[in-house]
Simulated assay, not measured.
Amino acid sequence: MNAYAALLRGVNVGGRTRIAMADLRSLLTTLGYTDVRTVLQSGNAVFTAPETDPATLESTIEEALAAELGLTTRCLIRTGPELQTVLTAHPLADVADNGSKMLAVFLSATPDPALAAEHDPVALDPDTIRIGDRVVYQWCPAGIAEAPALVPFLERKWRITATARNWNTVTKLAALT
């Protein structure tokens, strides 16, 4: 069995797409996943399942959310080793001293190189944004509300799905997987 983290896009943020974490746990258990736990109220879950392609898990969960709960949202899956790599590759660790102000923006896919070159998110704030492997790191020293809106930029310019988690949440998810 492998451990996975499910990151639901835009759930329980600003009164939009709502889901009770008990319902999410129940849904994942119904799908046959085990050791299901949710983290916070923002659409994060960890579970174990037989080794499966993450893209298959994503589509299975998305389809079940729509069919069972009427919730249409994207789900990004990361394995435990992938989350650990995000933590160890942290390119802003020397300045990011507050986990609630440090973001990992998870990407649904590796961006098209031409789009990435044409629309470089680092240009939004060269001191606080770095690009990793299917993740963009963003340090928000004045707070997340004051930082450049990275998720909409990436989704619009790179034509991919993105979802952000603060560093404290990423660390918890990695520990649970």
Rank of each mutant, 00 (worst) to 15 (best):
N98H: 13
L107F: 15
T34I: 01
F106A: 08
A174F: 07
N12F: 05
M1D: 03
R25V: 01
Q138H: 00
I19G: 10
L57N: 05
C140I: 03
L176D: 07
L176A: 07
V36E: 09
A142V: 06
D127H: 09
A117G: 15
S108T: 13
D120Y: 12
T171F: 03
L65V: 05
L71W: 03
L154Q: 12
R74A: 14
M21W: 06
H90L: 02
I77G: 01
S108A: 15
S100K: 10
T30K: 07
T177M: 02
N12L: 04
L24F: 01
L103R: 10
P50G: 06
P81N: 09
C140N: 14
Q84H: 07
F106E: 08
A93G: 07
E51S: 09
G99L: 06
W158V: 12
T17W: 03
V122I: 15
L31C: 08
T161Q: 12
L154F: 11
A142K: 10
L71R: 07
E62H: 00
T177I: 05
L154R: 11
L173C: 03
A6H: 11
I61G: 02
N166A: 07
I129R: 04
E58I: 04
L24R: 08
L24V: 01
E118S: 14
A142F: 01
V136F: 04
G70W: 12
N44Q: 06
P152I: 09
W167V: 08
T38I: 02
G70D: 13
A175E: 15
T163D: 07
L173G: 09
G99I: 08
H90Q: 13
L27Y: 03
N2S: 14
S100I: 11
L124Q: 09
L40K: 02
G70K: 11
L83K: 11
L92H: 02
E146L: 12
T128G: 08
D94Q: 11
V39H: 14
A64E: 06
V46S: 05
N2D: 14
N166H: 07
I144N: 12
Y137V: 05
A145Q: 06
L65E: 09
G99A: 13
I131G: 11
L87R: 00
G32Q: 05
A5F: 10
P121K: 10
D125S: 15
V11D: 06
S42L: 01
T34R: 13
D53N: 06
G43R: 03
E68Y: 04
T169H: 05
D112P: 12
T177N: 12
L65P: 08
